[in-house]
Structures are given as C-alpha cells and as structure tokens.
C-alpha cells in the first residue's frame, strides 16, 4: 500500500464557492482513481489544516474547503496584499505538493448486517424477476460485493456507494413510496444504498439493516465515511430483531 498518488497539476482547478469556500476539482468523473485523490487530499488537508480552516467536504471528484476569511487574512496576509481566497489557494497548493508523497491509506472495511426480503425487502422479488435470477441469487450477488463509499451527502450519514453488480441493477419504482423506513437497503439503477433516515423515495427495497448509520451523539456521528468499503452480511429475521433489542 505504498503506492504513490500521482497528481497531474495541469488538471487541477481551484475555484471559489462564494467568499468563504474553495473547491479543488480533482477530476470530472466517478471512478476509484479520482476517489483516491479526493481521499488523500481530504486526509492531508485535515492533518495540515491552516488557521481559519473550518472543514473540508469530500465529494465524487472534488474537495471543498470552508474557511473563515477574516482569520485567514489576519493570520497570513503579512504583506497586506493578498485576498483570503488567494491565501487559501496558496496554502492548498502547498498541501497538494505533499500529496505526491502521501501513502495511500488502507480503507476501513465496515460490515453492515442486512435482513433481505420479506417485509423488510418487499421489492426483492421484483429485482430478481427483472434480472432473471432467483431471490437467493440476488442476495448472494448483493452480499458478496464490496462497495466503496465515494461520499456522504444528501442526508446525515447517507453513503453514495459504488460497486453494484450490473447483474442486479433495477429501475426505480414508477411511483415513489411516501416513506422509506430507516435502515432500508435499496437499489436504483446501478446504485445501491442504505437510508439513514426515513424519507420519501423511489428505490427498490431489497432488505433492511438494524445497524444505525447515523447517531447524533456518537463521535463520529456517521457509521460510514468517505473512503470506507462496505460489505453487506445477510442475517435472519431473528438476528435482525435480536440486534435491535441489544443495541436499543
């Protein structure tokens, strides 16, 4: 895992997101190579954060750095001739130089127990039929995959996962459900995901996890983070209920 992450400087664009944030664009598509850069830069920016740094938000192909312009200006503008954006851009360029030397961190593997089918996964038969597979085969394929967490967004703790097998892709429901229960595991197109909160949605629900993906009082509050690898582990209804009782 000592692979170096090469960064082609020409391709890197830094642009403002208003007067208090800066976006570093590391690519234009969703793939693991771009993701590795996003992850490495996120880790580095947090490790070498500057005075006035508030936080950074990794996404599919970019990292956004939020900062306090006043603190940045007062701390770093000794010559009184640079704007906060210029100062942050300069500091991020310095951080990016180290990116070439940064070791690739081993991803964290997070197992998520899922009770497939039945009342927890009412659309499992549909997904099977759609792909000319048996219900068991869909479970086998879904739970043998490794899913990369590209980013967390949309809702607290909601992971954007990559790596769903095309063999079990399925279209969204024609009419969305008014409410998808917390912990639902679903498929929409060639994406799979887990709902940390109850929300309306058109995903095909194939199962449910008793694990809490988001807990405001935990630190960190989200079970998953950008860069993690998720594995779904099938459990029975009894195990699901037992899990719920013991973690409540």
């Amino acid at each position: 895992m000592n692979q170096r992450i090469g960064l082609d400087k020409e391709k890197i664009e830094m642009k403002p997101l208003g007067d208090s944030a800066l976006v570093i664009q590391l690519g234009t598509e969703i793939n693991t190579a771009v993701h590795k850069k996003v992850r490495a830069l996120t880790i580095l920016s947090e490790k070498h954060s500057f005075t006035g740094f508030i936080e950074c938000v990794p996404a599919f192909a970019s990292v956004t750095v939020f900062y306090n312009p006043l603190i940045v200006k007062r701390t770093y503008d000794t010559e009184n001739n640079s704007s906060p954006f210029q100062l942050v851009r300069f500091m991020m360029e310095e951080i990016m130089k180290q990116l070439v030397e940064e070791k690739e961190e081993k991803p964290r593997i997070v197992e998520i127990p899922v009770c497939y089918g039945g009342e927890y996964g009412p659309d499992l038969p549909f997904v099977a039929e759609e792909n000319n597979l048996s219900v068991e085969e869909v479970i086998e394929i879904h739970s043998s995959g490794e899913y990369l967490v590209y980013m967390i967004g949309f809702a607290p703790g909601f992971p954007y996962l990559g790596g769903l097998s095309e063999k079990i892709a399925a279209p969204r429901r024609s009419s969305p459900r008014v409410s998808i229960p917390v912990g639902s595991v679903g498929i929409a197109g060639n994406q799979t995901g887990v709902y940390p909160i109850s929300t309306p949605g058109g995903w095909q629900l194939i199962g449910r996890t008793p694990a809490a993906l988001f807990h405001p009082k935990h630190n960190p509050p989200s079970l998953l983070a950008s860069g993690d690898v998720v594995k779904f582990v099938p459990i029975t209804v009894e195990e699901y209920e037992h899990y719920q009782e013991t973690t409540r």
């Binding site: 997101l17 996404a59 956004t64 949309f154």
Partner: peptide, 10 residues
C-alpha cells in the same frame, strides 16, 4: 454534474 459541496447562499 457530479454532486459536490454547496454553501449557504448557493
């Protein structure tokens, strides 16, 4: 467009 961070006032 790929999802990325937004800010207050976007």
């Amino acid at each position: 467009l790929l999802s990325e961070a937004v800010a207050e006032g976007t």
